[in-house]
Nucleic acid binder design. Structure first.
Lengths: 230, 230
DNA sequence: CAGTATCCGATGCGATACTG
DNA sequence: CAGTATCGCATCGGATACTG
């Protein structure tokens, strides 16, 4: 049996949406990913076959539209109007998760690639300095290739590299992935991150500017129940 | 693997909420069911073991509180503050389902018990006549025991019976379960139901009053995309 | 009534290999 | 790159039986 055998709108919506991975795929689509491998980057633990299958189900459900890319046999995945209207759902999920679930970040949920990809996507281009800056991130507790990143920003351009792009590094961050994740999520502020284990090396003015253009999660501002007025 | 391995609030919330049956269990709790078998009535196709298991998971997640009932070894299930804050989630799901999924009611989703139970719960007591009235429903296309119902309303009392309670029947409805379901869901109005296959037998004033106190789904008023301004 | 324990079949899903 | 097909296991979940 697939459905719930109920005419209730909550049940009919849940048949489509309350499946494993589906809300995360929607989150990625709503965040603006359209290509298969871009979507994959947002859900790295999901297998290709399953992502393919889910996209197909969502297409059948009228949530996703698959557009062929001319020449190639690849596609682009876009939300239909019905899919766009799922933004409130993902927001409500995220707000609730931020308020009630993320008491502490579990070790299993840390993922340096996901974090850096989010950071890249969240850079506030409107607050960037004019000139190009290379920011090096050293995630001190991450061994191997995923422990060093170069973020190239400025001049309307944002790039994230796992290998040294060669330009001079303007600012160098050394921080544990936990602290950077907690800052990203809004659990601690910049000064608390500095107090924990964030170290900055570089010109004073750059150290000052970075929190203005380094974004945070869309849910960073959600008030927690144990907070001031909760 | 159980979780999604992501620190994202959407992912953490989905680990708890985007599981099979879970949104429907939440719907029932939000609708005010607290006892195991009351919950079951709202999700009749869910097995007891699974409902038990889900309630346990929700308890572990801090969404449900299980209270022992003194003397008995039974419990009452109540939403915690975190659980109460899931009301917007269920509303968003229902709104979206109403707008985009319920194009037509599928045969598999019809369920006379669920429908009559919903109707019972939705009776607008504040619009009821003073005196007790017995309304008999004949679901003409439902064979067997679930095709005849007696709704006893009035004087602050609402009862739903599958067997003749013995009182004099004040109003008699004959209608297909599809038409009654479509009215309940807001897909057709009362006059359209009468035009389809709804027949009423009883005093004129009672025929007039019934649509004022017979409620409809909480999502009946949600505008459909193909509607006037969509 | 109000569940819990056990069994076992369905299927969900990841791994791998393959294709244009 | 952008997926799809196949295989096999692990888990989910329904049926049944059992308990206080």
């Amino acid at each position: 049996m697939k459905g719930y055998g109920q005419f209730c709108p909550v049940a009919k919506a849940s048949e489509i949406l309350a499946e494993r991975w589906t809300p995360l795929v929607l989150r990625e689509l709503l965040a603006g990913s359209h290509r298969f491998n871009d979507l994959r980057r947002g859900v790295p633990l999901m297998s290709r076959s399953l992502l393919s299958k889910r996209l197909r189900s969502l297409e059948d459900a009228g949530v996703v539209e698959r557009r062929a890319r001319p020449g190639l046999q690849a596609h682009e995945y876009h939300l239909t109007p019905a899919g766009e209207e799922l933004r409130p759902l993902v927001e409500v999920l995220g707000n609730w998760g931020q308020r009630w679930v993320l008491a502490d970040v579990e070790e299993d949920d840390l993922d340096p690639s996901l974090l850096m990809w989010d950071i890249r996507r969240g850079v506030r281009t409107e607050h960037l300095p004019e000139d190009r800056i290379v920011v090096r991130f050293d995630l001190r507790d991450v061994a191997g290739a995923h422990g060093r990143w170069w973020l190239v920003v400025g001049g309307g351009e944002i790039d994230l590299c796992l290998t040294d792009p060669g330009f001079e590094v303007g600012l160098h961050l050394r921080v544990s992935q936990r602290t950077l994740t907690r800052y990203w999520l809004g659990q601690i502020d910049w000064s608390q991150a500095l107090a924990d284990d964030l170290e900055l090396v570089g010109p004073r003015w750059l150290q000052r500017s970075i929190p203005t253009w380094l974004g945070r999660s869309a849910f960073a501002g959600v008030e927690r129940p144990s907070g001031p007025s909760g």
